[in-house]
Structures are given as structure tokens and as C-alpha cells.
């Protein structure tokens, strides 16, 4: 069972307290009704599904109930870092050489 650090509780808690909520940094248009088919397809259907580092959303559903973002390696399942919802995608990951 993974340990996940909730950036709001500032604590590592067991995976059982959390629920994954899909890919992060997928922005919903403020003019969604006017979006083209292609743009809506990209927004709603297309996900990166990488082998390696993924940016994804989690919710501390059985804890503080907040949604937050996490960087996880899909190969090792290791969490690189977590950060609050609304914060920008980190430019540099901890442990990365550049």
C-alpha cells in the first residue's frame, strides 16, 4: 500500500484514505460551449497515459476531502511530489538533474 503525502494535511497517509481523480492540468475552457469538436475531444477524451512521470489529481477523500495534484512514476508507483490544486505544474522535479 502506497503512502501519499497530502499537501493540505502536510502528512503522509495510507493510500486507503485517497482516491485517484485522473490526469491533472487538463483545463476546462471558460467558453466550453463554443469549443470546436477537436478542442473538446482533447479536453474530454485524450489523456497522456505515459510510461514514467504522470501528473495526476488525487483526493484525500477519507481525510480533509481536498483535491490536490501529484507527480507519480507509473513504472515504480513512486510519488515524486504532491502539491495543492491550482498551483502550476512544477517546472523542476525534486531529484531531477535539470
Amino acid at each position: 500500500m502506497l503512502l501519499i503525502r497530502c499537501p493540505y494535511c502536510e502528512e503522509e497517509r495510507p493510500e486507503l484514505e485517497f482516491r485517484n481523480a485522473g490526469e491533472a492540468h487538463v483545463v476546462r475552457s471558460t467558453n466550453i460551449a463554443g469549443e470546436s469538436d477537436d478542442d473538446f475531444e482533447k479536453f474530454f477524451f485524450i489523456r497522456s497515459n505515459p510510461k514514467g512521470v504522470i501528473y495526476e489529481r488525487w483526493r484525500h477523500i477519507h481525510g480533509c476531502a481536498r483535491f490536490f495534484n501529484a507527480v507519480r512514476d507509473t513504472v515504480t508507483d513512486k510519488f515524486v511530489m504532491t502539491y495543492k490544486a491550482g498551483e502550476p505544474k512544477p517546472a523542476k522535479l525534486p531529484g531531477a538533474s535539470k
Binding site: R59, I61, F67, A85
Partner: peptide, 13 residues
């Protein structure tokens, strides 16, 4: 409730 919280916290904060 989950769906509402999701939008409130992340899309319409």
C-alpha cells in the same frame, strides 16, 4: 457530492 466538490475545488474555486 464528490462530483460537486471536484468542480468547486478545482474548476470553480
Amino acid at each position: 457530492m464528490h462530483h460537486m466538490e471536484d468542480y468547486l475545488q478545482t474548476e470553480f474555486p
